[in-house]
Write a protein that binds this DNA or RNA. Sequence first.
DNA 1: GCCTAATTGAAAATGATTTTCATCCATAAC
DNA 2: GTTATGGATGAAAATCATTTTCAATTAGGC
Lengths: 145, 145
Amino acid sequence: MTGKLVAAELKRKGFKLTPQRRAIIGVISQSQEHLTPADIYAKLKAKHRGIGLVTVYRALNMLERSGMLCEVHIGDTCRSYLKRPSGHHHHLVCKGCGKVVDFSDCELDDLEQRVTQDTGFRIDRHLLEFLGRCPECQAGRRGKS
Amino acid sequence: MTGKLVAAELKRKGFKLTPQRRAIIGVISQSQEHLTPADIYAKLKAKHRGIGLVTVYRALNMLERSGMLCEVHIGDTCRSYLKRPSGHHHHLVCKGCGKVVDFSDCELDDLEQRVTQDTGFRIDRHLLEFLGRCPECQAGRRGKS
DNA sequence: GCCTAATTGAAAATGATTTTCATCCATAAC
DNA sequence: GTTATGGATGAAAATCATTTTCAATTAGGC
Ligand SMILES: [Mn+2]
Ligand SMILES: [Mn+2]
Ligand SMILES: [Zn+2]
Ligand SMILES: [Zn+2]
């Protein structure tokens, strides 16, 4: 999901489009990794002038509530954000460089049905993530961007 | 995994078996839900005399490092703990009462292979959780234990 | 351009977790 | 059983993340 699209969506939902929000969305949209609020703040301070960390938190909450972000749980941290491609998908996370790749076919229906039969639970949603190493990190070239 | 077994395992690994640790392991082993450090502390204060919250944190870290606990990510919180049954397994979480049921067949090999082919990642591990409602909560009887 | 509600940022408040440090005690050695 | 000792404990302080407060600013509708 490109930054322009997110901005348009924001506007459509009646949120104001401030320079700060533009900048925050820009940082998230361009990153290949999942970013913590502090990560985003650090990247912003580098380029733009004083944006408050509070504003980053508020923007993230807003974007999350609007369904325009998603979280990553496996790996180090549980609160980190990513731009959200449209539709149901899951994450493949590189434990070397932090890169996150999306994939969309999960084919868990059979398993869900079996588990439902065994337990009587009604299943609403699932969390599926893979952790591994990307080709670059396997090749030896490593390090956080 | 029963409390006795965890205690034995602790001893085997060279940790001391204190009354506090016994109590903490007992609480975790008996619970059907995932518990936050504060949850555990609250349950302990009820029965035993002054155990420090710090000690709960320290015990949890130790147990986690030793692979005797597992986490639950889907739902409200990401820092909550459960007794760990031996072997690879996953969690089915009730969003009504918090009960957690384990299941062990995940059959993600095919999907992992496909994702590996598509992306070149080497996959080390996966996180899979289902969120839903247990039979009791579906029937209407709800509420945290 | 003006108005107004939404947004911002500094600071303070809150909440969770970790560190510090003096004291205690579980266990192994005698 | 006694003793020695390193690991464990708990209160308090320190740290770290996140939220709240509030006065000042501003985006977007008119
Ligand atoms: Mn899926
Ligand atoms: Mn599995
Ligand atoms: Zn990588
Ligand atoms: Zn339930």
